[in-house]
Design a protein around this nucleic acid. Structure first.
Ligand SMILES: [Zn+2]
Ligand SMILES: [Zn+2]
Ligand SMILES: [Zn+2]
Ligand SMILES: [Zn+2]
Lengths: 133, 133
DNA sequence: TTAGAATTGTTATAATATAACAGTATGTAA
DNA sequence: TTACATACTGTTATATTATAACAATTCTAA
């Protein structure tokens, strides 16, 4: 029993949690996820965090660091999460993943004066969205 | 007693906590700060978090969101924290504030396709620093 | 088929952050 | 100077976010 869902490489818990995040219009927090998947047999925080860690690692979801919340990747898995950018409304908390090739290229090729070579970046923009204006 | 330190606008607790962060070579976490200021009479988390909130608000320190840790601003208070960028070593955890006018201007003038006007951004670059190479 | 790797289930606990309430200090303006 | 508003402080308790540790099962590939 408890078969892997080979069609997309996700395990049972990973799939359940990804589906929940993917269909949510807003970022979900770990314990919100936990409460919502208890009916499916996921009972404890480590089960949620392990799935989240894996989903982040493979680029299916991203963590919004300023909110401790998770969103599904809308951008063909962001080259496995090496270059992420988000717009965040400070009023309604809505989060949108920004897909802008120019921005991504500009930042990916940005080099630190101190000679550090970057492997990854995360950018969070804050403002008031159209709806909230 | 407990006079305001008017020379720089910081209250007693704010000054104690700012001094600690400012002289630290690395980001400090809230409870690390708490342990280090208990000898100065700051005993409880809310005292630390209130000072941190204020210091962030006035741009004296920044929160490194991916680490839940705080660093002093090295950049004339970043126009009150509207535009922050950091480089973070994934090996030694060192954090450097990036001061790059071009980068800052580029991002400050970046406009979202969906019409949202940004007021603020935070950017975190990750890599391996020179020392750790 | 069998050994290693990945995943799961479970209990307990660590680490991060805030609520709520009471009191004190400071600046301003009548 | 008094009175008021604002900011800051102290304190206890609690909420929220995340991980440690261990045992078992399932998957994968040789
Ligand atoms: Zn993405
Ligand atoms: Zn909004
Ligand atoms: Zn700064
Ligand atoms: Zn390093």
């Amino acid at each position: 029993m408890t078969r892997m869902h080979k069609e997309n490489n996700l395990s049972k818990n990973q799939q359940i949690i990804f589906d929940l995040i993917d269909k949510s219009p807003e970022p979900l927090k770990a314990y919100t996820i936990l409460f919502n998947v208890q009916k499916k047999g996921i009972n404890a925080p480590p089960q949620v965090y392990r799935a989240l860690d894996k989903l982040v690692e493979i680029g299916k979801i991203h963590k919004i660091e300023s909110k401790n919340a998770f969103v599904a990747c809308k951008n063909s898995d962001c080259e496995i999460s090496k270059a992420t950018a988000f717009s965040i409304c400070e009023s309604c908390e809505m989060v949108d993943e920004i897909s802008d090739t120019k921005l991504s290229k500009y930042l990916s090729s940005f080099n630190h004066k101190k000679g550090m070579k970057f492997k990854r970046f995360n950018l969070e923009f804050f403002g008031i969205c159209k709806k909230c204006k």
